[in-house]
Write a protein that binds this DNA or RNA. Sequence first.
DNA 1: GTATTTTCTGGTACTCAGTTCCAGTTTAGT
DNA 2: ACTAAACTGGAACTGAGTACCAGAAAATAC
Lengths: 230, 230
Amino acid sequence: MSDPGLRERKKARTRADLQRHALRLFREHGYAETTVDEIAAAADVSRSTFFRYFPTKEDVVLFDDVDPLMAEAFAELPPDTPLLHAMRTGVTTAFRRLPPEKRELEEIRMALVRSAPELQAAARERSGITVTAIADRIADAYGRPRDDLDVLVFAGVVAGARLTAQTLADRTGESYIDALDRVMSRLEDGIPLDGLTLGSHATRLADGLVEQAAGSDGTADTTRPEQHRM
Amino acid sequence: MSDPGLRERKKARTRADLQRHALRLFREHGYAETTVDEIAAAADVSRSTFFRYFPTKEDVVLFDDVDPLMAEAFAELPPDTPLLHAMRTGVTTAFRRLPPEKRELEEIRMALVRSAPELQAAARERSGITVTAIADRIADAYGRPRDDLDVLVFAGVVAGARLTAQTLADRTGESYIDALDRVMSRLEDGIPLDGLTLGSHATRLADGLVEQAAGSDGTADTTRPEQHRM
DNA sequence: GTATTTTCTGGTACTCAGTTCCAGTTTAGT
DNA sequence: ACTAAACTGGAACTGAGTACCAGAAAATAC
């Protein structure tokens, strides 16, 4: 590893160039409105080369240097740390340990992900925010079966918390880590709104639910134009 | 409205035909392996017509009739129903009220969604399982701000529960509703694994978390030898 | 320093999802 | 029976992603 070599250096530079130009173009014109051709042209390489470095267009946005740090942060926690608390601090301290410029890049990246719904899903998948992934880790570590109800439900809560953090960050403008911190610490006190009852709100809640599905019968309006908002 | 009319009947039939053939082909050959052309051909209509009925290929899977019933079920719940319990019974009774053949179709549909990861994300988006959607409904109904922390966290828990139910249904083979029922009722007792601490499992947990970044995808074999590395 | 092998690049040509537009047909309204 | 509205099929397009190959550029061998 002492000798990077010319070839390796060129590759790293090409990759960085592609990423840089891609993120710039995405921010200027939007994710969907930017074509791979444009990115390749901006980085002065061919289309083929783009796909050689990033298997899909999504991948340019979805690189992630946080995970290795997360593992590290985890291993350092004291053994008597409650699991939910560990899930919180593991992620947040990993983030906070990123070098400042990478952390900033990370925030930009996440803002971009939030702006394009087609990216959100892919982002979750690639960064192990799935219930499956979380549950399996816990189950394996604690020697429980992989379909253990408690483990799965717990994993669902954690996954839900991360989704919530994304929404919260989006709406308040605060950083993702801060949002996640707030959400998780709120959860450590139990599920909120637990005492609340339906009261007279059932109808209004129900109304909100219907407008989801405009066309169930054949009476549906032909096509629905409002599909992708970007 | 008692007179559907010839045109409407034809449309309903075409739509049903398309969906029926699509689901069949997807089950026989897989979602990704089935092209829109094949579906259209099977239903004996043109490609254009397919897209006129279903704006995207995903939509043919993601078209369901349960939501209207959900609203109905909600409105019937007694006012003193705790919110979390309401979120459970609203969904489950709606499902159980579906006519048997539609319910079966629904289960097939959901199994299919679970089998294709690219569908899972879209499914959440379109069926209002997003944190955003749930939170907004609750916030609006109760007159709280849309960025209320408690509301968002609660919505995250519900969203997580639905994700969990999908995983659980997939692993145990039970129906989605039954899984959701179990998950939600478990949550009504509070967050599970709350007492658990990290103990000596931190390292193993951490290890599990990293390998997420590397691989573990179902898709075939594109070039991804060294992606998150440089 | 030249030759050989390995790796990277650009280009062409494909498939499939999704859009747009138009011409021709079918249904509805009167 | 005739006209207006809605539906269909087809052609032509864009953009993402894949497969393949010829040639350039490094890395290594001699």
